[in-house]
């Protein structure tokens, strides 16, 4: 069966991002309040590079784990409950603690050797690059 080329080329792999991101997420109940997905992720793209940013306030960098396999990106970790001294009284408790895990399906495979992750002021930023061999190649047409 032939798929019209026009529809193929017009397909935006990021258009389905939202649906994929929602479908793939699985927040562990203790880490999330209500049905909200944690952690929330913003996705930036620039050609063959994708930058994911997420807010993880109160998480130690050593407690964050990132894995990349083909098109699957996973982010997991734990936000530990702060140690309250004996006899301490909680006046307000709005923050949530515990383990979290998210998986995101990317529109193209990721070069596992070129993943750059940075954590500053509670924000994790991960840059993912498309491997050279996966990039579409322009074919030169020789004159006869």
């Amino acid at each position: 069966m032939l798929t019209p080329a026009s529809s193929y080329f017009r397909h935006d792999p990021f258009a389905e991002w939202g649906r994929l991101a929602r479908g793939m997420s699985r927040a562990i109940p203790q880490a999330a309040t209500g049905t909200r997905t944690f952690p929330a992720v913003n996705v930036w793209r620039d050609g063959d590079m994708t930058v994911l940013t997420t807010e993880l306030p109160g998480v130690e960098p050593d407690d964050i784990e990132i894995t990349v396999k083909d098109t699957l990106f996973t982010l997991s970790g734990e936000r530990k409950t702060p140690q309250a001294p004996e006899g301490a009284h909680w006046h307000l408790r709005e923050r949530s603690y515990g383990k979290f895990s998210r998986a995101l399906q990317l529109p193209y495979p990721v070069d596992p050797d070129k993943v750059e992750a940075r954590f500053s002021d509670g924000i994790l930023q991960v840059a993912l690059h498309r491997p050279e061999e996966d990039k579409p190649r322009r074919i030169e047409i020789k004159a006869a």
């Binding site: 807010e55 993880l56 306030p57 109160g58 702060p82 309250a84 001294p85 006899g87 301490a88 009284h89 909680w90 006046h91 307000l92 408790r93 709005e94 923050r95 002021d121 509670g122 924000i123």
Partner: peptide, 22 residues
């Protein structure tokens, strides 16, 4: 900001989540 407040005999501690703030 989402906040936790703990009080002990020594005083009060507030923890506020403010990601991205330097």
């Amino acid at each position: 900001p989402l906040t936790d407040i703990i009080e002990t005999e020594q005083g009060v501690s507030l923890m506020l989540e403010m990601p991205g703030a330097s």
